[in-house]
Amino acid sequence: MCLGIPGQIVAISDEAMQTGIVQVSGVKREANLSCVVPADGNLQTLVGSWALVHVGFAMSIIDEEEARRTLEILAEIGELQEELDAMQQGAQG
């Protein structure tokens, strides 16, 4: 299952190439912003926005509340997965 990971657009790195820096789970990565270019074409207005990032592309702009909700669910999954991994390792050990 493909989980959507919210990231915050923190800077525009190349206006011409339509790329920006997106902070995902505390890590900054370059992302292609061509799918979320605003109607007026001004990429700078995206700085501070939250986006769902997939294989290096910001695919959709989401609001902060939705991003927070998603991050909470993802954290829950992360904890669950860690517990399961620990159980599996315990069973193997």
Partner: peptide
């Protein structure tokens, strides 16, 4: 309600 937040790539399908 969790589906669209959780899955994006095929969120509509999910």
């Amino acid at each position: 309600a969790m589906m669209p937040s959780l899955f994006y790539i095929c969120g509509m399908g999910q």
